[in-house]
Design a binder for these strands. Sequence first.
DNA 1: CTGAAAGCGCTTACAG
DNA 2: CTGAAAGCGCTTACAG
Lengths: 349, 349
Amino acid sequence: MSDDEHEAKPVRDRSQVTIIDIARMAEVSKKTVSRVINESPLVREETRKKVKQIIAETGFTPNPQARALAFRKSFLIGLVYDNPSPQYVVNMQRGILDTLGDTAFQLVLRPCDRGEEGYRERVRSFILQHKPHGIILTPSVSEDEELAEILREEECDYVRIASLELDIPSRSIRTHDAQGAEMAAAHLAQLGHKRIGHIHGPKTFRSAHERLTGFKRGLEGYGLELAPELTVEGAYTFDSGVTSATRLLNRHDRPTAIFAGNDEMAVGVYVAARKAGLRIPEDLSIVGFDDTPISARIWPPLTTVRSPIREVGRAAADLLVKRGAGSDGSQELQSFQLELVVRESTRTI
Amino acid sequence: MSDDEHEAKPVRDRSQVTIIDIARMAEVSKKTVSRVINESPLVREETRKKVKQIIAETGFTPNPQARALAFRKSFLIGLVYDNPSPQYVVNMQRGILDTLGDTAFQLVLRPCDRGEEGYRERVRSFILQHKPHGIILTPSVSEDEELAEILREEECDYVRIASLELDIPSRSIRTHDAQGAEMAAAHLAQLGHKRIGHIHGPKTFRSAHERLTGFKRGLEGYGLELAPELTVEGAYTFDSGVTSATRLLNRHDRPTAIFAGNDEMAVGVYVAARKAGLRIPEDLSIVGFDDTPISARIWPPLTTVRSPIREVGRAAADLLVKRGAGSDGSQELQSFQLELVVRESTRTI
DNA sequence: CTGAAAGCGCTTACAG
DNA sequence: CTGAAAGCGCTTACAG
């Protein structure tokens, strides 16, 4: 590291414009510039205009590190996730980035493992150290009440994405998974299926329960029942889909249709069906959940329940970023409807 | 979580421990503590030990915002990518996060679009504003020499991941794509295929060129040639895979095997084959590239060239984080070999 | 090897 | 509505 040397070097023309320069040019104090930046109403309209113009002319951008230090809060938005489906995660990221765009806010990735000991404390350290502007929690970590309690304790803003109402409206985004599963059930029932299997997600995911419940309710609407022996638990992973489906398809009274709790597992069902020598959809109809990219790429294209993951991500980031801009007290809970996307993996029996 | 109760709890003062507290406790100056934190060699061993111990006891972590402001450099690692394959991106993220772990460094996502005007300036603003510790560039943005020039200009450290040698060793990670494609060619040739089609990626990706070249070379080794009419350009996307394959398969002299430039397109070939009523691998053998998760999930499982994306991500982050820790001058260029993963989508003709 | 001073570029609290 | 002072928690540059 050579340190010395240096003659009258243009002394870092790279020197960015700072709030001081703006203040000087606008003939006001730093504080007033700061007020304009932070959209304080306590600035005369005329003054504001003048400052804003100079900011625009110089292309000045306030230094986020300095602001973070003074605010005791950074411009990071943390995405805390433990979702085993990579497609879900990518879509979520896209949505959040749609909102963040070129704002000063940055998306920071914080994968975690609910099974791992001390995972909550790891999140806490992140918060304590980096003082993020907010945290977005996806299922299933979003369902962890103790984690939410930690966030409140540390006064970290957050939004929980879940298939049920877990928190106050301004901190929740809800997806109507049960309703989505109900549509899946109706679809299969209408096609004439009676022996229907279901592979649900792990019990640690509330979505698994919601989807199961909704599916049952949907079948009941058609006078059908979900046989307990045809209801098995998967892990929301591809492998678990293969294993669970294999079990179902090896039965002498195998189902004519299987509803998988997510697309990853549904794709596993495809493989199990192939290995069992069954044709899709001639011998077996399959319905998935999420409408992640793979569902349209696989053959035959998968009928699935579309969960607007990307939009949900956008909305979640919006909630965090626009805080205070509007009312946040008596806000209504934002929720997203799902829809059934009928493709070619389902057919009349 | 019961919170209160327990007596004289060290009142984990919401007021965090600062460098001043440590200095006071160790009976040294702030500066000395700072030196210990930054591993300066200019500290007496005894002093260092003492300070380190107190840091450990108090659980002190230096405030990254303050350090960033003083250093004029943040603790963010930016991932700049324009790769259209979500699977590639997820794997890359995983690798980087493996290295970053619980360090102070955070992974920040910066997707971009090389086609969009002003995309380079957008990266520049990010750097100017956030002063990231370093940037990781994946193909094809990694191949943009003008972008690299901007990074150097702004004195931002970076690592370019590419299928060829683009930069100095300490700023490059190389994958041997040509060699991988050669293996794919050999595999198909050994199976007896003679009419072989290839769908390569877009010309803006050097990897597309490398893979094409390697594939040709591989065929030549077996006295085969890649017919120009069976060589088409895709976009590394699923849809382009379907379209390109459809074109190839509609020919009267259709190929008996297709090598796709990446897995996304290979999956598209599956769909085109199905639509054309061709069985895989009985009527058509398919080879992909990357070994992303989908290749093992699809039926029949895809034979593909394994690109160690996750390891590459780990290595790239390592390069950025460990800078200075060792020699960085006469370093050797890190490169990764690929391997052929033979699954069930290829068969003797 | 160690430290006192000044500064990074903003904001909070406090006055007016 | 506006500003001067102090401070956020570190590091740089300069002394010793």
